[in-house]
Simulated assay, not measured.
Amino acid sequence: MTSRVVLVTGVSRFLGGATARVLAQDASVERVIGVDITAPHPHFASSHSRAEFVRADISSPLIAKVIDSAGVDTVIHTDINASASASGGRASMKEANVMGTMRLLAACQHSSGVRRLIVKSSGAVYGASPRDPVLFTEQMQPRYLSGGYGKDVQDVEGYVRGFVRRRPDVLTTVLRFANFLGPQVDSVLAPYFELAAVPRLIGFDPRLQFVHEQDGVAALVHCAGLDDDDAAGVFNIAAPDIMYLSQAVLRAGRVSLPVIPGPAASVASRLVRLLGYSDFTPELIRYLRYGRAMQTELASEQLGFTPSYSTLETFDDYVAGRAITPTLPLRALRGALRSRS
């Protein structure tokens, strides 16, 4: 499918801004419209002349006018945020994520021109529990979902399923991304490994799986160019390998702060939030207790997309790109890493 006019939401953040920039450099794309309520990310600001920014709230009726007047045929919805602090609080976050998506989908539903919809979702929809499978497939349901961002993306996907029933003519793809990491993307996990002493629950060493920021952009751009029915549906997007939390702490050159599960974990959470890491929520603590990993074969086989970075490479690039200074002496760190390999 040749996308002629593409609308990208959430361009004030890295993923949306960088996706719009790459699409604007594609000669087959006539026009890229970036939408957000705040100033666009620097990646978007340096986009090709075919890209333009529209300051608009996707929850407002204006978004329908933008879609119709510009003749938009492809919508890439990245404006689903995992950070309550960046959204102005949990209530504002839910309003933007869920109600914003609902109203954007309503605008797409009533548009005669929209033929392609790509929605950024998250592996958080699977939750985290001690009864989880080794790998979540796209057909599996969460064993436990505590709320927060995971509940938001579950609601978002419910609205998308309703949209598909009403507009089966629109080729719709939902991408469930693993946790993003990289030098520039603002993810809820990025500040965690920057703490001098990283809180870890005693007796737990969860499996972690990441997707590099550039692979996230590449997946969205790749899907924008697909017109095959195989591209319709829900797909896990992540590096195929995993790493353990203990490995990540060592590779970041950090020391662990042992925390006893239970009331002590709540105390530690409040302390970490006081230190400035406001997104250290109960939902994140549960993830850092049980971890999560997803199967990625479906994206490779049906979408033809495979990430360029492994989980280990993603984490190392994040550490290098953020210039994280090791807390541990380098000699001790290298010895610990050798003992883990």
Score class of each variant (00 low, 15 high):
V160T: 04
A178P: 05
R166I: 01
L105V: 07
G147W: 07
M102G: 10
E157N: 05
A124W: 05
A91S: 07
S146C: 02
L171K: 11
T172E: 11
A82R: 00
S83Y: 11
G162L: 14
A96S: 14
V153F: 09
E95S: 06
V174D: 12
R165Y: 12
G127W: 11
R131E: 14
D152P: 00
R176A: 08
T137I: 09
A106D: 13
K151M: 15
T101I: 09
V174C: 07
Y126S: 08
M93Y: 07
G162M: 14
F163T: 00
G158D: 13
V114E: 11
D155M: 14
L171H: 11
G100D: 08
S121V: 04
R115A: 10
L171T: 05
M140E: 15
E95I: 01
A106P: 00
V156Q: 02
V153Y: 08
A128C: 13
Y144I: 00
V125D: 10
V156H: 08
L135P: 01
V119I: 15
H110K: 11
V156D: 04
A107Y: 05
L135A: 09
A178D: 11
G148H: 10
P133L: 05
A82Y: 05
G162E: 15
A106V: 00
P130Y: 05
R116F: 03
V174F: 11
V160C: 10
G113P: 03
V164S: 12
V119A: 02
A128T: 01
L145V: 04
S111K: 03
F136E: 12
A84T: 09
L145I: 03
R161P: 00
A124H: 05
Y159G: 00
V174K: 07
M140T: 03
A84F: 13
R131W: 12
K94N: 10
Q154G: 01
A91P: 04
G127S: 10
G127Y: 12
R143V: 00
A82N: 03
M140G: 04
M102R: 15
D132Q: 15
A178R: 00
V114Q: 08
N97V: 03
S129Q: 07
D169A: 08
K94F: 14
L171P: 02
G123M: 10
A128H: 10
V164Y: 08
P133W: 11
P168R: 06
V160R: 05
Q139I: 12
R167F: 02
M102P: 00
F163N: 07
V160M: 09
R161N: 08
V170L: 01
L104Q: 04
M99T: 09
M93F: 01
A84K: 04
M99C: 06
Q141R: 13
E157C: 02
A124C: 09
G89S: 03
Y144R: 10
F163V: 01
M140I: 03
G123E: 10
M140N: 10
A82L: 06
S83K: 01
R176K: 10
S111I: 04
S146E: 13
Q139E: 15
A82D: 15
G150Q: 11
S92W: 13
A128N: 11
L105C: 15
Q139F: 12
V174I: 15
V114W: 04
A178I: 01
